[in-house]
Simulated assay, not measured.
Amino acid sequence: MNNKNPELHIVEPIQWKEDHIRIIDQTFLPGREIYQDIFEVGKVWEAIRSLRVRGAPAIGIAAAYGVYLGAKDLPEIEIVDLHSEIQRICEYLSSARPTAVNLQWALDQALSLSDSMQGEPAEKITSALLDLARDLHENDKQICADIGIAGQELIPDNAAIITHCNTGSLATGKYGTALSVIYHAHLKGKKIHVWVDETRPLLQGSRLTAWELEKTGIDYHIIADSMAGWVMKSSKPDLVIVGTDRVAANGDVANKIGTYSLAVLAKHHGIPFYVAAPKSSIDLNTPTGDDIPIEERQDDELRVIGDQVTAPEKAPVYNPAFDITPHELVDAFITEKGIIRPDYTASLKQI
Rank of each mutant, 00 (worst) to 15 (best):
I334M: 08
Y344P: 05
T335Q: 03
L329V: 11
N285A: 12
Q104T: 13
A106S: 10
F273T: 01
F39I: 07
L51D: 09
E76W: 09
I305V: 14
K17A: 11
D252T: 03
I14R: 00
N102C: 12
D225P: 00
Q308Y: 07
G243V: 11
S84N: 13
I86A: 08
V330S: 10
A315S: 09
E328V: 11
I257E: 04
A159E: 04
A249T: 03
A171I: 06
N285W: 02
N102G: 05
L132G: 08
I222R: 01
A321G: 10
V80K: 14
I192F: 05
L29Y: 06
G31L: 13
I149M: 10
A185I: 06
G306I: 07
Y344M: 01
N5V: 11
A263F: 07
V196W: 04
D115I: 03
H9P: 00
L82D: 09
A249Q: 01
H269M: 12
I24V: 15
N102Y: 06
G148E: 01
S50R: 14
L208R: 03
E214F: 09
T27H: 04
A133L: 11
V309I: 11
A263D: 02
F28M: 13
E296C: 09
L93C: 11
S226Q: 11
D146Q: 10
K267Q: 14
Y35K: 12
R32L: 12
R200G: 06
V196Y: 02
K267W: 13
E198K: 00
A228T: 12
T27R: 15
G217P: 00
L111K: 14
H83G: 09
K215Q: 13
R297L: 07
D37S: 13
L74P: 09
T27I: 15
K236H: 15
I218L: 02
D25F: 11
L51Q: 03
K236Q: 11
N5L: 13
T167K: 02
Q109A: 13
G176M: 01
V44P: 02
E120S: 11
I23K: 00
A315R: 02
S226K: 06
H186L: 12
N319M: 10
A56S: 14
D323C: 07
L203P: 03
P75R: 02
Y92M: 14
P342C: 06
I34L: 09
